[in-house]
Simulated scan of single mutants.
Amino acid sequence: MTTHRSLLSAAAALVLALTVLATACSRPGTAADGSGPGTTLVTVSAYAEARRPPDIATLSTGVVSLAPDANGAIRRNAEQMTRVVAAIQAAGIADKDVQTSGVSLNPDYHYLANRPPRIKGYYASNTVNVTVRDIGRLGGILDALVATGANQINGPTFDIEDKDAVLDEAREKALAKARARAEGYAKRLGVRVRRVISIDETGGRGAPRPVYGRAVAVEQASAADASAPIAPGENVLGLGLDVVYELGK
């Protein structure tokens, strides 16, 4: 008799538990998205950009030297490169902003028809990457590099060192766009925007996109120096937002 009662009690407890579980699963407003009865979820995508003049520039510069033998090419290249690095330092560029990017030594071949190539000399190359934090001096720095023996210059590439403030502006614009679009949906449906369910941000950390149309040539400190004109223009940072809004009465 005791065993029979225990089985009945266990069965009753199981039925009660299943009833509670079924009620919880069917109750409105308990979905994972947090929506309640009479609500609609809408996902709105918005993209926005912010622009700033760049405040740093990077360039690659170095020396390629030719000599009849490998030792002569390396020695000549080292002498020329020492003068180039000294010019970089004299321009006020910090050591942390100068980094060697490549050193190479390659034969220079002489080709004749129906004959194997013959080595007639060697090319030695040394290249450094330079970060310039005063763009107004960039033209003068380029002139100084050439004057001291640099025969390889690539760049400059302009960038924004502190991107956070620029991205915050783009983020604020994108969020305003998303809210306006959600309000438009709500108005057409005869409801209102209740709250934000989620925000997903994409992009925003890529390389800044230069805008050349509004570029202004950098003026050099000395009018007597005919330095190369530099046009930094503006850089653009953008990001996109996917925002889920809850709409309802």
Rank of each mutant, 00 (worst) to 15 (best):
A24Q: 05
T157Y: 03
S222F: 15
R205L: 09
G149D: 07
A67G: 11
G206E: 14
V196P: 03
D69W: 08
E79C: 09
D134H: 15
N154F: 07
G72Q: 12
T157H: 10
V84D: 06
Q152C: 00
A32L: 13
A87N: 06
I56C: 00
L66A: 06
A207D: 11
D95K: 13
L7E: 10
A231Y: 08
T40I: 06
N114P: 05
A78L: 07
L16R: 02
A13L: 15
E49N: 11
K249D: 15
V63A: 06
R192H: 13
G155P: 02
M81F: 15
A207E: 14
A32I: 06
S227I: 01
Q80G: 06
P28I: 11
S222M: 15
L8C: 04
I160R: 07
A90W: 07
L105E: 04
A94T: 11
L59F: 12
R51N: 10
P229E: 10
G102I: 00
K163L: 13
V84F: 02
A46V: 02
V218E: 15
G204D: 09
R214L: 14
Q80A: 14
A13Y: 07
Y123T: 12
D69E: 14
A50L: 09
V166L: 06
V244Q: 07
G213R: 05
G248A: 08
T82F: 13
R137V: 09
I88W: 01
G34W: 04
S6V: 06
Y109C: 04
A17C: 15
R115Y: 01
Y109R: 05
K177G: 14
P229A: 09
N151P: 04
L241I: 02
H4M: 09
D200P: 03
S45A: 12
A22H: 08
V146N: 07
A91C: 10
S227A: 13
L16C: 01
A170I: 01
V166Q: 00
E201V: 07
T61L: 11
V64C: 00
E183D: 15
A217L: 05
A180S: 13
T30Q: 07
G155D: 00
A221Q: 14
A174D: 05
Q99H: 11
I135T: 01
T39I: 00
Q89V: 13
G136D: 05
R205M: 05
D95S: 15
V244C: 05
P116E: 08
A124Y: 03
S101I: 15
Q80T: 06
T58G: 11
I56P: 01
A46T: 03
D95T: 12
A12W: 12
L16D: 00
R137Q: 14
Y122Q: 06
G139Q: 00
G204N: 10
G34M: 12
A32D: 14
P28C: 12
G240V: 03
T3N: 07
A180Y: 05
L16G: 12
A86E: 13
L138G: 04
A46M: 04
V20T: 07
N154L: 02
A48T: 14
